[in-house]
Design a protein around this nucleic acid. Structure first.
Lengths: 397, 397
DNA sequence: GTATATAGTTCGTCCGCTGAACTTACTAAA
DNA sequence: TTTAGTAAGTTCAGCGGACGAACTATATAC
């Protein structure tokens, strides 16, 4: 039986600190008084909590801000320098990195391609070297978020069909290499989380990653839903048809994925081109390309309609390379959704492309690190508050 | 933006009271000292909280309980009389009622059949009359839980395909009729919740209701997952095939449901019999009946395998009339699951029949009422016990 | 009986939030 | 320029709730 850790007064404090940080993150620089109103605490409480956080170097004071009569407030801000998080997407075909902080600033974003067969350990070493070279003073980071294109269960990778990895422990490996806390997550889950972390979205949010294959991530009330083994949302592997074994069976990816669409396009047009070329053709109004995208959109609409009777999301966000085709997808998708919706409400379900494009997973990974930090009310995860005022850090944008 | 209600010391107290109640509910009569160990509080804290709850009539003291050397403890128990909850399942073909309390005692269970076309208002009046007649002093109830075979969103019924109800407000109606708080929930969700409330289960738990149609309920960490409109888990309406409209389309119920199975059975055997007769035939080893059940089991296994890549449950519970066929379903289902599992882990997924048979939904409904009560730390939802609520209460002394 | 062990109570202490009173710093009108 | 008005931020006594040590109560083992 789980050991209970009953709430104590400190947990209240932690909670209130978290709320202050979240309010600051959302509403930008505001005064203590405004903060108190926003989080529902008294001025005195906010004042003393803010005082602490200032001393810890978590917040910083800006100039006075006058608005109408009365004493002007002092602008409070989250100190970005001390709340840096690194987000890394280890994709099948490349690695993508972003460096962010809690004040919503992006300090850098870069990536590179890799060969799909590279072993995970090699990818991690490569990553570690990159971090050591390009990030001055990595010890200041709160941590590293790492996403993988596979099933992640309790920081372990169970299975990644794309690159063919099985039963790996990337968190431990990377922690050893970098000496930093590492959070591992499935790529679609991370992207879904990132979307809710930086944008205003209703809950539940369902994120669909449309790439070679198909995957989804679900965030409910700010929490990633993973299921027992982290396989929740692996809907690309939903079986249709009557086959007696998984190998013979057809799955959702076989009809809904860029791979499937390109196959159809190649068959009808006779052209042997990849997704990006196909998009170019569509821009040039090539009927084969447009027909292929239309079929994709319809399949996607059918899929979304089905997700409504499974997860009943309040919003659906489309990500992955497939999202680049959004202009061609939107209206046929909407039509399919209207024709196939179970509830009339589902026909109006908001569906939109990701706000972060190809950075979505990496941004989500970083968000997971920041989220952890917030959950602890901004407690220093490492290097307890001995010397708080550390020299400032600037990273190439 | 949601109004924040920051934690105060009272919420800690409420939380601790809840934990004490939950520990007592699980572990039966125990001493204050044992309780303190179980919930991780000090003896003094437990003592004072228990003192209060005794005075409120929430707990009662039993005789001393001696175990080895040392002063024997005083057995503490939840007072059933003051924690009664009524659970009602309004099914398509009948109404089922249970009367329970927090100490896990069943005070009664009964039901009756109704005509499927009866309007909802009539069903509720009939129910109210039944309650007034058969329950002495209904005012003592903590509340009534009501389940409906349809989509329930924020206490309103959006759509119930079975009886054909749409946009009804059963909670308000029943509250007016009975003068009691009412909680409304989808039948599968309630059954799922009941299963986690009274049995030890890992999370997430997925409950499959196999009746004429097909529905599921999901409970994650003790919370029912409903989605935006309460349509989550309406998987009977998952579409397969390429149809262009919902009417023409085939859905999961068309292949996986008792209706579908019976249709198949009637076609092969030429016999025009219902599910219960089919079960009798199976008991008599009729090959047609057994073949029909085998097909059902296989479809169910395929469905469960798919649910693993959608919800990735830690346990699946089978309910509804279909669960009565469990002896014939178990092994073919297991086989299908093994052949179709995405992860090796999924092949071993625990699948079991509901512990509560045809009472499952009604028990779940009652559980929802009790759960609310617990969440408030056992605060009287109605009729505050004289001096303990508004005036400043004297602790200890 | 004596020793030991456990149950339950009492009371002083600590911690975090509150609310009222206060100081500070600005705007606007006289 | 003065003065009233208003809002920001600080201070401090007080309160509620958990804690822990010391205490009392009541059993078993010998």
């Amino acid at each position: 039986m789980a050991r209970f850790t009953p709430l104590d007064q400190q947990s209240i404090k932690r909670q209130n600190r978290r709320r202050i940080l979240e309010a600051l993150r959302r509403s930008g620089p505001v005064s203590r008084a405004a903060l108190a109103r926003a989080v529902g605490l008294t001025k005195s409480t906010v004042s003393s909590l803010v005082q602490e956080m200032l001393e810890e170097g978590l917040l910083s004071e800006g100039g006075p801000h006058s608005a109408g009569p009365g004493r002007p407030g002092t602008r409070l801000e989250i100190c970005g320098e001390n709340t840096l998080a690194l987000g890394v997407e280890l994709g099948v075909e490349g690695t993508q990195i972003v460096l962010l902080d809690l004040s919503n600033r992006t300090h850098g974003a870069w990536g590179w391609a890799v060969s799909p067969e590279t072993p995970l350990s090699e990818r991690l070493c490569e990553l570690a070297a990159e971090v050591q070279h390009h990030i001055p003073d990595p010890a200041r980071l709160l941590g590293v978020g790492l996403t993988l294109p596979g099933v992640v269960n309790e920081q372990a990778l169970l299975y990644a069909p794309g690159p063919g990895w099985r039963n790996e422990r990337p968190a431990e490996m990377l922690e050893a290499l970098l000496g930093l806390p590492v959070v591992v997550e499935n790529d679609a889950n991370a992207a879904a989380f990132g979307e809710t972390f930086w944008e205003e979205h209703p809950s539940p949010l369902l994120y669909i990653v449309l790439t070679t294959g198909l995957g989804t991530g679900l965030v409910v009330d700010g929490q990633v839903y993973r299921g027992r083994f982290g396989a929740a949302g692996e809907l690309g592997h939903w079986l249709s048809g009557q086959a007696r074994s998984r190998k013979e069976a057809q799955d959702a990816e076989d009809t809904l994925s860029l791979r499937a669409m390109i196959k159809g396009y190649q068959a009808t047009s006779g052209r042997n081109e990849d997704f990006w070329r196909l998009l170019e053709q569509a821009r040039a109004e090539d009927p084969y390309a447009i027909a292929a995208l239309d079929r994709l959109a319809w399949e996607l609409g059918r899929f979304v309609a089905n997700l409504c009777v499974a997860f009943d999301p309040a919003v659906v966000v489309l990500g992955g390379p497939g999202a680049e085709a959004w202009p061609w997808l939107e209206s046929p998708l909407r039509r399919a959704l209207r024709d196939l919706a179970f509830l009339p409400e589902h026909a109006e379900l908001p569906v939109k492309p990701s706000a972060f494009g190809h950075l979505a997973s990496a941004m989500g990974a970083a968000a997971l690190v920041l989220q952890r930090f917030l959950a602890d009310g901004g407690a220093r995860l490492r290097s307890p508050p001995t010397s708080h005022r550390v020299p400032s850090l600037t990273v190439g944008a």
